[in-house]
């Protein structure tokens, strides 16, 4: 099969994604500047001053921030500045954390990947394995039970399972460390290094990874199952059977190939949105990733970081989706370029 690059489709997608990014920046400007200023009659500079700040009077501080961040400029100048800053990742300095915002975000971003990427891989394995299991046993009791549990996972509140697990296995039985700080020190209290550090990290991450995987495999399992069932009933599979090809080989070589593509492509989309949904696991297990950053910023009303973190999360989604646009035609020849 010859593969031709669908340029028109790709260019169209790139333009679409760029438009989306611009719309998001405008949207953020709307909710961070326009709404506070024009609807709530509030100076956005207030957002930058730590609530606990003591020293200069608050109004002096706000004035200084006005000058520093250009918040006393006309709104369209601020708008241009904002768009420029977002596109060039100039997020400024957080007075609340006393650190540059970009540094805070850069510290948080990789933390997510320790848990989220392995759990995504693991859930894909569950989805494909259980999906094929059901597809082969379509209509039997084992299929019904398996499918019921997959549906059940859609509706189980993740945070609930996480706290139960943490309380029973962490607090009660003491099987694993209940927060990351505890995981990364030796029994004597000294920080771990090298292999011991990695071992501590793995020991700590393994539980959330498995739980998250168990809670997330449902949709992709259903996808694999339904495509598997469809594929099992298709005439080419009947043909293969008629030719006398062993059932095992029919299932694992031919049916599986068709059935797993939707699950894999869906995994890509889940990968794009995975950080966005990480708030709960990070909060409960004490990871300081993007989700937790967003959450803490919301709790402490740190609008500056909130806006920037939201922007980075959206950007991440857009970039991943764009990469997927390029990859999908390679793994699934059935993708339509429309």
């Amino acid at each position: 099969m010859r593969f031709s690059v669908p340029w028109r489709y790709l260019v169209k997608r790139i333009i679409e994604r760029i438009i989306l990014l611009i719309v998001i920046i405008n949207f953020l400007f709307l909710i961070i500047y326009i709404i506070p200023i024009y609807v709530a009659h509030l100076n956005p500079a207030e957002f930058y001053v730590p609530l606990s700040y003591k020293g200069l009077s608050r109004s002096t501080e706000v004035e200084a921030i006005d000058r520093e961040f250009g918040l006393n400029q006309p709104i369209f100048v601020q708008y241009i500045d904002y768009v420029k800053n977002m596109l060039t990742f100039h997020f400024g300095y957080s007075l609340i954390y006393d650190e540059p915002v970009s540094k805070i975000i850069l510290q948080a971003l990789p933390v997510d990947l320790i848990i989220l990427v392995p759990s995504l891989i693991l859930s894909t394995v569950f989805a494909i394995g259980l999906g094929l299991f059901s597809a082969v046993r379509f209509g039997r009791l084992s299929d019904s039970i398996n499918t019921f549990f997959a549906i059940l996972t859609y509706f189980i509140p993740g945070f609930w399972v996480l706290i139960i697990f943490l309380q029973i296995f962490g607090f009660q039985l003491g099987l694993f460390p209940t927060n990351i700080a505890q995981a990364l020190i030796s029994p004597s209290g000294a920080p771990l290094h090298g292999w011991a550090y990695i071992a501590g990290l793995i020991k700590f991450s393994i539980a959330p990874i498995i739980i998250l995987a168990l809670l997330a495999y449902g949709v992709r399992m259903a996808l694999t199952r339904s495509y598997g069932v469809e594929s099992m009933g298709s005439s080419y599979v009947t043909y293969l059977r008629a030719k006398g090809i062993p059932e095992r080989s029919v299932v694992y070589k031919h049916v599986m190939r068709n059935a797993i593509i939707p699950a894999i492509t869906r995994t890509g989309i889940d990968f794009a949105f995975v950080i966005a949904g990480s708030v709960f696991v990070e909060d409960i297990f004490g990871f300081y990733g993007m989700g937790e950053l967003l959450y803490r910023s919301a709790l402490t009303f740190n609008v500056q970081i909130l806006g920037d973190a939201f922007y980075i999360l959206s950007l991440y989604v857009i970039v991943v989706l764009l990469v997927l646009d390029f990859i999908y035609p390679l793994i699934d020849p059935r993708v339509k370029y429309e």
Partner: peptide, 24 residues
Amino acid sequence: DFFLTIPGLPLLITLETIFVVSGL
């Protein structure tokens, strides 16, 4: 599609915070 692409929970949190902070 635009609303589908924006990460939902973060948007929810951000929007709500803005409303709280701005006193609306």
